[in-house]
Structures are given as C-alpha cells and as structure tokens.
Amino acid sequence: MRARAAIDLLARHRGDAVAVCALGMAANEWWAATKSEDSFYMHGAMGFAASFALGLALSLPQAPIWLINADGSLCMNLGCLLTEASQAARNLKHFVLDNGVYQSVGALPMVNDGRTDYAAIARAAGFPRARTIEALTDLEGQLPAIVGEDGPALTVLRLEPEEGFLRTPPMTYEGPEMKYRFGRALERRFGIEVFGPQGY
C-alpha cells in the first residue's frame, strides 16, 4: 500500500489518540495528514520515538497513545520492544511503517530488506498482539478492532517505497516551539501540568 493512503486511514481512525512520530517519513506524513499539535514529531534521536511514547503512555494512562514508528527507526532500537512488552502499557499502540528503505534520504535500501518479520520479533519479545498488514483494504477492515484492543500491540504496515516523498520536514514549527505547543496541548486536553507556574 502507499504511505499517504495508509497514514490518511490511520488519521481517520485516530479518535482522540495522542501521536508520537518517528523522524522522517512517519513524522512528515502524519503532519501532512493531521496538522495536529497534540502530536510529537521527532527531529532526532532516531530509534527512540518508541521509548518517548512509552514514557508518555506510562505517565498518561488515561490517554490513548499511538506510536507512528518506521522500520529504520525500529531497527535502530529493537530493544525497545522488550521494554514495551515488559511495561505492558494498555494505552499504547505501536504502528510500524515498513517500506524496506531509508526513504527520506533517497530510498536507499535497509539492512536485510524484505527478510525480516517485525511482528514475529515483537511476539518473541513478549507482545501479546502483533500482526503485519499488506493491503489497504485489510488495514481498513482491521483498524476498528486494532483501535479497540489493549496494548501493547504492534501493527506493521507493509508500504511501497515511493518517489516524490516529503524530504524536508513540512511542520511549520520546530525545536522549543514544538515542545511548548505539544506540552500546552496536553495540558489543555488532560488538565495536567507539564510546565510549572513560571512556564518552565
């Protein structure tokens, strides 16, 4: 399936989930689809959107947290699956955009392209639920159940490598502004205090 179509479908089923996006295609496409400030778009720390999302999920158990990860990022920190499985956050759902390439640097092939079953790795790491979805129609059919199930759950979306992708981050803000927009959005939605009375 095509990345944009898969992301658009995820966005339509998002409901009130807070999203954490791995850098590159995941962040860029999620922004393009949602323009949402209650999403955190990684610009660095490749591989660690998963850990960031876990920390957020454990700290906000009342909030559904969606991790929009990518295969390149997952491979940079496969150990995150062990930690995620052991913490068993019921409110955390882990999606992996799997196109087999480092798309945002020119679609160069990833190590072991096409021979790795990430859902099997997740199950072996202790995930009770993990699956791979190849076709958009299957994703559309399965998403309501995926949205409704408890985490930890991992869903791998097999995507086609593409031309014409978003190479430059399209978000209109970055760095500290992303921190404050995301933190203030969560403060408003959940009545929590991210920043203290003096703003830090």
């Binding site: 720390a45 850990s51 960031f52 920390g55 957020l56 454990l58 403060e187 959940f190």
Partner: peptide
C-alpha cells in the same frame, strides 16, 4: 520503575514522561 535495554531508552522515556506531567 522501567528497566531498559539501552541507556538512551531511559533518556527518551523520561522525556516522554515530562510531557505527561510526571
């Protein structure tokens, strides 16, 4: 308490927790 497999996980987990107000 979250036991991690690599120290940078701990950094990112604490960073995510910051945004949860924890």
């Amino acid at each position: 308490h979250v036991r991690v497999a690599r120290e940078a996980e701990a950094i990112a987990i604490c960073s995510g927790a910051f945004f949860g107000g924890v």
